[in-house]
Amino acid sequence: MIDITSVLTILFVAAGIFFLLVGSIGIIRLPDFYSRTHATSKSDTLGMMLVIIGLIIYEGLTINGGKLFLVLLFILLANPVGAHALARAALNAGLKPIFPNNKKDKEES
């Protein structure tokens, strides 16, 4: 038997896992630290949001659903703050971003 909750859950969780996969690929493919931070802070946030929204739909209006919503809110606040803290630390430590279109930078790296 197929009901609408299961279908929605499967759709959301599958979409979320796709975006988490994109985030992982980005960490491998991108050329420098600052662009890798883009991959973790955006694709991962979206993927985790979608998976947890799917689980909330599966759970319904219970205490555990509320706790899952709390996890969602926490991720939404904590992920960009963590990415910003790392990027700021890297800038203070003297790590310069790579500009791939600039020829001089390409030769250096």
Partner: peptide, 12 residues
């Protein structure tokens, strides 16, 4: 960044 990505995905 790698460890951070692993930690966030482990939550899910």
């Amino acid at each position: 960044v790698g460890t951070n990505a692993i930690a966030t995905k482990t939550i899910v």
